[in-house]
Measured scan of single mutants.
Amino acid sequence: MEVRTIKVFTTVDNINLHTQVVDMSMTYGQQFGPTYLDGADVTKIKPHNSHEGKTFYVLPNDDTLRVEAFEYYHTTDPSFLGRYMSALNHTKKWKYPQVNGLTSIKWADNNCYLATALLTLQQIELKFNPPALQDAYYRARAGEAANFCALILAYCNKTVGELGDVRETMSYLFQHANLDSCKRVLNVVCKTCGQQQTTLKGVEAVMYMGTLSYEQFKKGVQIPCTCGKQATKYLVQQESPFVMMSAPPAQYELKHGTFTCASEYTGNYQCGHYKHITSKETLYCIDGALLTKSSEYKGPITDVFYKENSYTTTIK
């Protein structure tokens, strides 16, 4: 009895394709271990004539594949690729409408935090270190965002349907971005203890939790000093293409032309909904596939993004 075979390709990165001759009487799992086709788990399936010449994702289970996976995804987590594939199996079914010149995501599976993050990423200057993220990001900007969303979920250790947080998501993504040249110098002034300067680099240099107003941050924000008295913390120097200011959701007025974009969060910790506000020729609110415009805006804002380049204080 002759062994019926077909020729397929296996890959971990969709760049390096490895030619395989597979036995049609055995499952993919018996031949390769966990195997995925377009995100779908085909591990328990036997090869079919229609699979001839198709590319299958496999887990990096030998040295060659491990090197290829690390170079593309910059992670050695053995569960990463499987999590990416199972997320992709959902995100490829989502709709990605162009809204006001940006790629958004039609609401499904509690994905409003991903839509808000995706919209924000198209408006701030950011370059990702893992080629996987950078490639998928370019495709997302062009309207094909399924891979990018699935990668975000995998890097953030999230599953489809789980509630997510924009600030946490951005923080994970910033860790995989090139923020080497970003720098922030802060000064804390206390009447009792004097003053202390701190220099922050990388992710810490672009994120701040405690106030939404970048102007206020430049002037000074009140913080408790270690001595128990009130101290003032203010920005001395900022070198970065953008800054992200966050605070627990509270009524906040966004003035046209003073910011790049913002995240609105309605609801409580267990259950809520994100919308995205962007400042173009007027203010726009993007909620999944829905767009509304207004000249002014007041609502429960939790993150505001500002364009920056270089700032030095005039406070002496």
Rank of each mutant, 00 (worst) to 15 (best):
C156V: 08
T75V: 13
Y306S: 00
M209K: 13
L133H: 01
L179A: 04
K275R: 13
Q230V: 12
V58C: 10
C261V: 02
D63F: 09
L186S: 10
D165E: 08
E281C: 02
Q196K: 13
F32M: 12
V166L: 08
G29A: 07
L151R: 02
F80I: 04
S295Q: 11
E68I: 07
T55A: 14
Q175H: 08
G288N: 04
C271L: 09
P60M: 07
R4A: 12
L186M: 10
W94E: 01
L37R: 11
C285Y: 03
E215P: 06
N89T: 08
D23G: 14
I124K: 03
D77T: 06
M245F: 15
G267Y: 05
E144Y: 14
L118M: 14
T198W: 13
Q175G: 12
C261Y: 00
T103R: 06
R167M: 04
L102I: 07
R141I: 09
V188A: 06
T266D: 12
T76V: 13
I223W: 08
L17Y: 09
P131K: 09
L291M: 07
Y113M: 03
L121S: 06
E264Q: 05
C156A: 10
I15W: 08
V189M: 11
K54M: 13
L186Y: 12
L290Q: 07
L173S: 01
L88I: 07
M85C: 11
C190H: 02
L179Q: 01
A250Y: 14
T198I: 14
T91H: 03
D13Y: 04
D303L: 02
Q238P: 01
F128V: 01
I301D: 00
G220P: 10
Q30S: 09
V189P: 02
T312P: 09
T232F: 13
V221K: 05
V206Q: 01
Y214V: 10
Q270E: 12
G101W: 05
N147C: 11
V8D: 05
V12D: 07
F32S: 08
T10Y: 15
N61H: 14
Y208M: 07
Q216M: 10
T91S: 05
H276E: 00
Y265C: 03
D23C: 13
P248C: 07
K92F: 06
C225A: 01
N178F: 05
T91D: 03
P241I: 00
K106F: 06
I45H: 06
T64C: 13
M209R: 09
V185A: 03
T5C: 13
E71N: 15
Y155A: 01
A132S: 08
S79T: 08
T312S: 10
L283P: 00
K158A: 04
G82H: 15
L126K: 04
V166A: 11
L254C: 01
Y284R: 01
N100Y: 10
N147G: 09
K191D: 09
Q270G: 08
F305R: 00
F9A: 07
T116H: 05
L37N: 12
A117G: 05
G267E: 09
Q31V: 10
T27V: 09
W94G: 01
Q238N: 01
E52I: 14
K201Y: 10
N61M: 12
Q230L: 11
L114G: 02
E68F: 06
T169P: 01
T258Q: 12
L81V: 13
T192E: 15
E264K: 01
L200Y: 15
Y208I: 07
E168V: 11
A247Y: 03
D165K: 04
T282I: 09
D62P: 08
K106R: 15
N129E: 15
L173A: 04
I15V: 06
F174E: 02
V8A: 14
A108P: 02
C182W: 07
A247G: 06
T19Y: 12
G143T: 04
H74W: 07
H18M: 10
P249G: 01
T10V: 11
K127G: 08
G228I: 01
L121G: 02
T258N: 11
C149S: 07
C182N: 01
H48A: 15
S171D: 06
L114I: 07
E264C: 06
E144F: 10
K275G: 00
Y311H: 09
Q238R: 01
V206Y: 01
E168D: 07
C193K: 04
K158E: 02
C182P: 02
K307C: 09
N157S: 10
K219D: 08
P131H: 03
S310K: 08
H18T: 13
Q216V: 09
K127A: 12
L153F: 07
I277E: 01
Y214A: 02
D165P: 02
T169A: 07
K229V: 10
Y214H: 02
R184I: 02
F9D: 14
Q238E: 01
T169S: 06
E71V: 09
D77R: 05
L126R: 03
Q238W: 01
T312I: 09
S25Y: 10
L119N: 05
C261W: 00
G210D: 01
N111Y: 02
E2F: 10
P78Q: 14
P34A: 07
H273R: 00
Y297G: 00
L153A: 04
I152A: 11
S294V: 15
D13I: 04
S279G: 06
